[in-house]
Design a protein around this nucleic acid. Structure first.
Lengths: 344, 344
DNA sequence: AGTCATACTGGAAGCGCTTGCATTCAATCA
DNA sequence: TGATTGAATGCAAGCGCTTCCAGTATGACT
């Protein structure tokens, strides 16, 4: 039904340039010795014929596909689609394609991705974004014989890049403590939500460390559990604000989406931010500005870029992948020194 | 550096099953005649050896890559990543890969995607999500010799699927008019924002039609311009709410994100929804429930699924693509009959 | 002048599949 | 019963590149 319009082959380019296809290949790919004059002739021929290499033929012959696989969970979550944008941008600039594997909750589909999709040798490397991998999955990835990099979380067996997940919440909590808050609450994830690799635990840990460093008992901190989304944060905050006796002047949320949920809940309940409660999040969400949210920005787009650069380097046999990612506190209007005002 | 772990070839499977590689290929792909007994032998051999077809070799030999290209703009926008999820889900289930081309504002990158990426013959079909294509791009897509489907917008030259973009806003406005509102405002896009193919104009048109049908003059409707995002809607609403003399009891926003921005602005300004102003959006945003937003749901995930099914059908030579997509009004708490209360 | 390294180029062998064609064999039919 | 048909299978020719190897030419060096 769809016949490919006259597709130009390397042979035609070679003929037009008056060289062999071997030389044409070398000229176009930049590998091997080709005289400048020949190279130009070939390039011109290719240009004028509109030649584009066939990825299938090239892959088959060279064993390289010029494509990177990206496995990511829920694309609705801002963090993940941000990382994906960053990866996509860098790969496109490098002339690589991006094969997306959206790993959903369907266990069968998920299994199939690890079993078959990745093995088709369509990709030269894999970036795993914030997935909690079980042992079998880790093994599958490892046995691929391809560079793999896990972004977010540090599975023992695979090279990873991650922010210091304790560091971010520690920084967030320290910010509040420095401002003078002494009674601060925490809203974070639960182990049951394993979309993030151990992230919930790590983040809570960081919070605790900061609190303890100020001689306080983390157990005294009112805590809520949510799933890293806006509605999740909203619900948790409503509950927290409504808990009798659980007063606090500051609140750390383990993600900006939760923090935004908190701010919405506060608005609904008439709790004033930051007069009655200061709120800090983690991520650097694009809506942070709109809400005046103080946050620990982890530059997700940059993380995507970095991961992509890294994997591209590894495809060429450089580096090994483990590294730390930067983050920084961005202070906006959702935090202030605790006022003399009655806490909520 | 990374040697591929013992990759199993079709020949090995064939040998293990005691047949020729031709038969093994037919057995595995399901094409051609193979006796049930042979088929089973081959399947078992493949299974036990962990054989997975090489996509490059298969593509080269058959001309089919079992991959679909998806071109999408800004992944942050909820609508786009929803559609993408839907596409991904359907493709994965069908055993297809998804090659993502995130089309950004960088004109050079964008050009390159159309010029080279799509021509590498890595994909069997292309789904274009809500991109305003210029003539050259349309032509490139058309000359690919591949099934292409444009989701959202209807470029003359390419088959497309779209909701009735006039219909959605007409429905939204009719909802308000039916409730008794007679002074309703509109927040929509601008031609300058061409991420959506003609969508801004179409949606405004639909709104006007509804208003006119009630004997009102669309020119009397207070209107704001925004870029389909939450902050955009927020800014436009602040302006609209602050315009002297521009009173209205209902507001139609051309996207849910804008509508959410409107609600946030209203909250900040103390404008009560729906008591003073009723708000309707378009999309079916996942946060609609949280905000109690009345909306015209266009089921973006479903759209993605439908588009994917369609393109898969076209790859197999069926159908031609043009079709309408369903949408429906979802009434929540952001709309009500105009109260006796003073409008904002 | 002779040797050797080096730059450039072409021939040709695959890469791992799919598929057209030929072959075999058993079932069907007049 | 011989001719016909069709299912089942194998052979082998590619698909369009990359790259090893060999060959030639050119320049450098002793």
């Amino acid at each position: 039904m769809y016949e490919r319009g006259a597709v130009v082959s390397l042979d035609e380019v070679a003929r037009a340039a008056g060289v062999s296809s071997a030389t044409a290949s070398r000229a176009l790919s930049g590998r091997g010795h080709v005289s400048p004059a020949t190279r130009q002739k070939v390039n011109e021929a290719a240009e004028s014929l509109g030649y584009v290499v066939s990825s299938a033929a090239s892959s088959l012959a060279s064993g390289r596909s010029r494509s990177i696989g990206v496995m990511a969970p829920d694309l609705h979550r801002w963090f993940f689609n941000s990382v994906l944008s960053g990866i996509s941008d860098t790969l496109t600039r490098a002339g690589y394609d991006l094969t997306l594997y959206n790993v959903t909750n369907d266990p069968q589909l998920r299994r199939e991705i690890f079993r078959a999709f990745l093995r088709r040798r369509r990709v030269d490397g894999v970036i795993v974004v914030a997935l909690e991998l079980d042992e079998w999955e880790t093994e599958q990835l490892g046995s691929l014989g391809l560079p793999v990099i896990v972004l977010g979380g540090r599975p023992r067996a695979l090279p990873g890049m991650a922010i210091d997940d304790q560091g971010v919440t520690r920084l967030a909590a320290e910010h509040l403590l420095t401002l003078g808050h002494r009674k601060i609450g925490y809203i974070g994830g639960d182990h049951a939500f394993d979309v993030d690799y151990h992230v919930p635990t790590q983040r809570r840990e960081g919070f605790d460390q900061a609190v303890e460093a100020y001689g306080l008992d983390p157990a005294d901190s009112p805590a809520g559990v949510a799933d890293f989304t806006i509605p999740g944060g909203y619900r948790a905050a409503k509950q927290l604000f409504g808990t009798p006796g659980a007063s606090f002047t500051g609140l750390v949320a383990a993600s900006d989406e939760m923090a935004i949920g908190v701010m919405l809940a506060a608005k609904d309940l008439g709790v004033q931010i930051p007069q009655q409660v200061s709120v800090v999040g983690v991520d650097g969400h694009e809506l942070g500005g709109l809400f005046g949210l103080t946050t620990v920005d982890q530059h997700p787009v940059g993380q995507g870029r970095t991961a992509a650069e890294h994997i591209l380097g590894r495809v060429d046999g450089q580096g090994n992948g483990d590294s730390d990612l930067p983050f920084e506190l961005v202070v906006r209007s959702s935090t202030a020194a605790p006022a003399e005002v009655e806490p909520f």
